[in-house]
Design a protein around this nucleic acid. Structure first.
Lengths: 233, 233
DNA sequence: AACGGTATGATTTTCGAAAATAACGTTTTG
DNA sequence: CAAAACGTTATTTTCGAAAATCATACCGTT
C-alpha cells in the first residue's frame, strides 16, 4: 500500500491535539524538553506544526497530568523538577503500586501470567541485544513500561491504573534526568526476574517487598547522580 | 446598565478557559449536567458564552480529571456513571485517604489542629441553620469539602493531595446522584465530630477506621438510593 | 426487502488574525 | 538616585470562519 509513503500528519482517527499531546509527553519525559523550560507558542508552532489553540489544548492536558506547569496569563513551561517532587512521586508510587501488585497477584488469571512472562521475556531480549544504555533505546523503554504495566494489569481498577500510569511517567522523567550522569546502568535485569517469579508463584509479600525496593532504588539512583540538578532550581 | 459594565466576565488574573473549566466542573459534579449527556459545542457556546477553542480547552482538562469523556472526532460527553466506577472510586479513596489521614495525624502541627476544628465548626453551624437538604446548599458543600480537606492537609504530599481531590470530586457527583432519591440525609454530623476528635487526639487507628466507614457508607447510600441509575446506562 | 454506495446536513476540529495581557526599557518625578 | 508612570514590544489568549469528519437519509442495484 503506497498510503504509508505519503505519511499522514497524524494517526487515523485521532485528533491532531491528541497526537501533539502524545509527542510533547514523550519529549518531556525524555528530558529533550528540559525541566522548567518555557514553552513558547512561536517555538512550539515551528516545532510541531500546529496552531495556537491546538497546542494550547495539548499543554492543558499535560498540565493536568503534572508534566507541564500552567502559569495563567504567562504561558506554560515544562514542570520543574525538585527533590521534594521526586520524594512525593516515589512515595505515591510505592503506596499505589504495592497495593496494585497485591490485587493482581490475588486476581490474576492465566492471561495475566502469560502477559507478565512474555513482557519480561521481550525486555530481556532487548537488554541482551544492547546492554549499554537502555534508557536511550526507545524499544527498551516501551518494553520496560509494558512489563511493569503487565504486573499490575489484573488489579481490577482502571481508576488506579490511570493514576499509576501518570506517576510512572513522572518517575521516568527523573530516570532520564539521572541517566545522562550515571556511569553505568544498575542491573535491573535480576530485579525484574525476581519480581516476575514472586508474582507468578503468588508470593505477594515477597513481590511487594521487591517492588518497593525497586522503586526506591530508582529514587536513590536519581538522588545520587542527578542530585545537583534537583537543588539548583 | 448592562451587567458586563459592573461584573467582570471572569475573575481577575484568570483565563476564561480556567473559569469555564471551573464552572463546568461544578455543574457536572452537581449533576445539573447529567452523566452521559453529550456536550455539544453549540449548546455550550450558548450556555457559557465562550468560543469553540476555549470550550475545547476546558473539556480537555476535565477529561484528564475523569469528569468528561472525550470521544475522538465525535466530541465530548459527561463521564457516564456505573456501579463499577463507583466501586473503583470508593476503593481508591479509601486507599489514599486512609494513608493521608495517618500522615496528617503524624505530622500535623497547631495550625493543622486549628484548621480541622474551625472547618468542622463552620460545617456544624451551617447544618444547624438548614438541616434539610445539605447537598442543595452550596455553602454546606464548600464547608464539607474544606473539613475533609483540612483533615488530610498536613500529609506533606501535594501530589497525593491532588489525586485525592480528583477522587473526592468524582465521589461527590455520586452523592448528588443519590441525593435526589434519598428520603432524608443520614446523620453525618456525628460522624464528622467523631473523626475530628480521633484526629485531634492523635488516635490514628480510630480515625482511619472512622474515615473508611464514612467513605464506604457513602457508597452504600448511593448504591441503595441510586442503584437503578447505575445499571440503567 | 436487503445491501452498498453516495449525497447531504450536522458537528467537531483546526487555523491564523485580532484582542488582551504581560514584560521591558525609557522617561519623568519626588 | 530611586521609584513611579508611561510607551513599546513580546507573548499569550480568545474568537469565529473554514476545513475535516461523522451521522443519516436517500437511491439504485441485486
Amino acid at each position: 500500500m503506497p498510503d504509508s509513503a505519503i505519511r499522514p500528519r497524524k494517526e487515523f482517527g485521532k485528533t491532531i491535539a491528541a497526537d501533539i499531546t502524545h509527542r510533547l509527553r514523550e519529549e518531556i519525559i525524555a528530558c529533550s524538553l528540559a525541566p522548567g523550560e518555557p514553552l513558547r507558542f512561536d517555538v512550539l508552532r515551528e516545532r510541531f506544526g500546529a496552531s495556537f489553540t491546538t497546542l494550547r489544548e495539548a499543554l492543558t492536558a499535560l498540565a493536568a497530568e503534572g508534566l507541564v506547569d500552567a502559569q495563567e496569563q504567562r504561558g506554560f513551561r515544562v514542570a520543574p523538577v525538585s527533590r521534594q517532587d521526586l520524594v512525593e512521586v516515589t512515595d505515591a508510587r510505592v503506596l499505589i503500586e504495592v497495593e496494585l501488585i497485591r490485587r493482581s497477584i490475588e486476581r490474576g488469571d492465566d492471561d495475566w501470567e502469560i502477559a507478565v512472562i512474555s513482557t519480561l521475556h521481550r525486555l530481556k531480549r532487548i537488554e541482551q541485544r544492547d546492554p549499554a544504555h537502555p534508557l536511550r533505546d526507545p524499544e527498551w523503554k516501551i518494553a520496560h513500561r509494558q512489563f511493569h504495566q503487565a504486573l499490575v494489569s489484573a488489579c481490577g481498577s482502571a481508576t488506579l491504573l490511570a493514576i499509576r500510569a501518570e506517576l510512572f511517567d513522572r518517575a521516568e522523567r527523573y530516570r532520564h534526568l539521572s541517566a545522562n550522569f550515571r556511569p553505568r546502568p544498575r542491573d535491573k535485569a535480576g530485579e525484574h526476574q525476581a519480581i516476575m517469579q514472586a508474582a507468578i508463584s503468588r508470593n505477594a509479600d515477597l513481590a511487594v517487598q521487591l517492588i518497593e525496593a525497586h522503586i526506591r532504588s530508582t529514587f536513590d539512583n536519581v538522588a545520587t547522580y542527578a542530585g545537583h540538578l534537583l537543588d539548583a532550581e
